[in-house]
């Protein structure tokens, strides 16, 4: 029995009034102009002299429209040949997905669903796609700053499958009200590394997953949400 069915059953049992359901697609919020995007952190470590002269580095992956990604990319070059510098260059990728909830004042429940579309793993020296895709994101958070990099209220994502279903009623409630308890910059999907470690590893491991088809299903009492469909 999924979360939606449980919520409806509970409402029937408790004798509540009408409950409507609406499924939302990602959309910009007043604080986040991107419905769905991604960001990341990057750091190179080299000695001072080698940092002056670096070669082209940077993240290898991005996400197309409607998708986002989560994972990491470690690059390690022990240095030899024409460029005898030890190079670490690491990236973490984090997805950000926002929903406009301005029509709600109060909700019964909310569920976030999304599909696990593709993944890549770096088996040095080559990258390979995985079938079925692996889930690299481990954590769902709430973006807490306008640059969409900081996030809080972390919860673990469920085990991997073709699609994931996460109860997000508590998070959505924090975005409602005036003023809301939490600014609505959207959800962050992160992991397995939430940030870059202090000491970058001596490896070339890469694990990245692309996620898509994000939908937020909201149950609400129309009498308490006059701006929502009645």
């Amino acid at each position: 029995m999924n979360r939606l069915s449980i919520s409806i059953s509970l409402l029937i049992l408790t004798g509540c009034g009408t409950v409507n359901s609406i499924t939302l697609n990602p959309s910009p919020t007043a604080l986040n102009p991107s419905a769905i995007t991604w960001n990341g952190d990057h750091r190179d470590t080299e000695g001072f002299w080698c940092s002056i002269i670096t070669y082209g580095l940077g993240p290898s992956f991005s996400a197309g429209d409607g998708q986002t990604l989560s994972g990491f990319e470690d690059f390690f070059d022990p240095g030899s040949g024409p460029f005898p510098c030890v190079v670490h260059s690491d990236d973490v990728y984090r997805g950000v997905v926002a929903f406009d909830l301005s029509q709600f004042d109060n909700i019964v429940s909310a569920d976030l669903k999304f599909s696990v579309d593709s993944s890549v793993t770096g088996a040095p020296p080559t990258f390979v796609g995985q079938n079925p895709p692996a889930c690299n994101a481990t954590t769902l958070g709430m973006a807490s700053s306008s640059d969409l990099r900081a996030f809080d209220n972390l919860v673990s994502l469920p085990p991997c499958g073709p699609s994931l279903d996460v109860g997000v009623s508590d998070q959505v409630r924090q975005w409602l009200g005036s003023p809301p308890a939490h600014p609505n910059f959207g959800f962050v999907i992160a992991g397995p590394k939430l940030s870059l470690p202090d000491d970058l590893p001596d490896d070339n491991n890469t694990n990245v997953t692309w996620y898509g088809n994000f939908q937020l299903t909201v149950l609400y009492d129309p009498s308490q949400n006059p701006r929502a469909p009645q």
Binding site: G40, G58, A63
Partner: peptide
């Protein structure tokens, strides 16, 4: 394959 692939600015790049 459709839009959205423009590289997002990654924090951490260092200039000289």
């Amino acid at each position: 394959f459709g839009g959205g692939h423009q590289p997002v600015r990654i924090v951490g790049d260092q200039d000289l």
